[in-house]
């Protein structure tokens, strides 16, 4: 029987992609601040959150990649 890819691989891909987008746009926001400011924006949560998602995403993508 055919075997489909692991669901964790797909989740890893998506987390990595979203994490990358969020981290990049948040770093960009340091140099070009967005028009709408947010509360606690000075903590740059997007950078930490994006990097966390990217790290987890890469881990899952590699660990559960199709053999």
């Amino acid at each position: 029987m055919k075997k489909h890819v692991s669901i964790w691989f797909v989740i890893g891909l998506q987390l990595a992609l979203f994490g990358l987008i969020i981290a990049v746009i948040s770093v960009y926001g340091i140099f070009v601040p967005p028009a709408q400011t947010v509360v606690l924006g000075e903590l740059h949560p997007g950078i930490y959150w994006g990097v966390l998602m990217l790290t987890l995403g890469v881990f899952y993508t590699v660990k559960f990649r199709p053999k």
Binding site: F18, I21, I22, I25, G29, V38, V39, G41, G46, G50
Partner: peptide, 11 residues
């Protein structure tokens, strides 16, 4: 809307 800037808002 209070806490999330570009990217995080989309998420």
């Amino acid at each position: 809307a209070r806490y999330c800037g570009p990217g995080l808002l989309g998420l």
